[in-house]
Amino acid sequence: MSKVMIYGEIKGGKIKKTAFELASEGRKLADGLGGELSAVLMGAQAEQFASDLGRYGVDTVYVVEAPELEGYNSEYYAQALAQVIAEKKPEVVLLSHTMQGKDLAPRTAAKLGVATVADCVSFRLDGSTLVGKRPMYAGKCYAEWTAMASPQMFSARPNVLETAENAKAGAVEKIAFTVDSSRTTYSTKELSLDTSGKVDLTEAEIIVSGGRGMGGSDYTLLEEMASIFGPTATVGASRAAVDAGWRPHSDQVGQTGKTVTPNLYVACGISGSIQHLAGMGSSKVIVAINKDPEAPIFTKADYGIVSDLFKVVPEMNKELRALLAE
């Protein structure tokens, strides 16, 4: 019996790391509940990832194939996921709080008559009840949440749960699915993706962020640092920089932007408003570079550099390039 079920997100023909994070956490929870861990994958290309999920502790992989599932669509994916959940009756369902997960989880939950405990950063079992700890007010406080209806649906913040290998079968079971076409949905006309492979802020392991102190839209120095760190790093911005039109809104970190949890957050020319500090305060390590020694960002920074970012960042880039080239 599948006690715990995860939804594995596939993007650009690859399974996302968040799927392995969920599998690793799901394995622990399934063991705690004394049952199996299953995963749901969508689309004809999905079967190839079953063995990867098996490596991270998944017993059974349900692969749902239908022409409508070849690209993401809210309604079709929610129908398919709700159907598998209704058929297999897991006690716990885990998704990732990614851009897709944010769209998929609530619609699926509503089909099942439940709500999702969204954006959890840790889980624990209290008997057979799953407890998810999640930030609220963009991280200004936390609370523990439980689901009172079945299935207990939760989503996890990307890049927070540890991955751990724990080989299980990862056996594939195909699920027959026909779209309920009485429901209308949107059709995708164009998908323009950044082909540089830039990772989304919410999933980045390193974020190099710039604020008012950047003085303009030239973020070359920060982009250079991010590219030295590699594909898991990306560039962010404060609200001041976004509102000034220097950076796109999708780069904004903070209470009215994105809440982020990277391993390393480098704040350049960001004074540290309460909204910004809420949005990045749970980063593992924070480096702040600011000319103003009184900037609030220094109260949260593990390494605070009181200096001109335009002088320090090029030097850091030199050091990093040398170090990471080794």
């Binding site: 406080c141 609370a143 523990e144 924070i286 109260t299 920074a301 605070g304 001109d308 320090v312």
Partner: peptide, 29 residues
């Protein structure tokens, strides 16, 4: 459908090392 309890403040984050008055190459290193 959901219930919350055990509200808590985020783990206190305190200022770490602060580098002041250093030359850019030295502080970068």
């Amino acid at each position: 459908k959901l219930r919350s309890n055990a509200y808590s403040m985020p783990p206190e984050r305190t200022a770490g090392k602060k580098f002041e008055g250093m030359e850019p190459p030295d502080v970068a290193k």
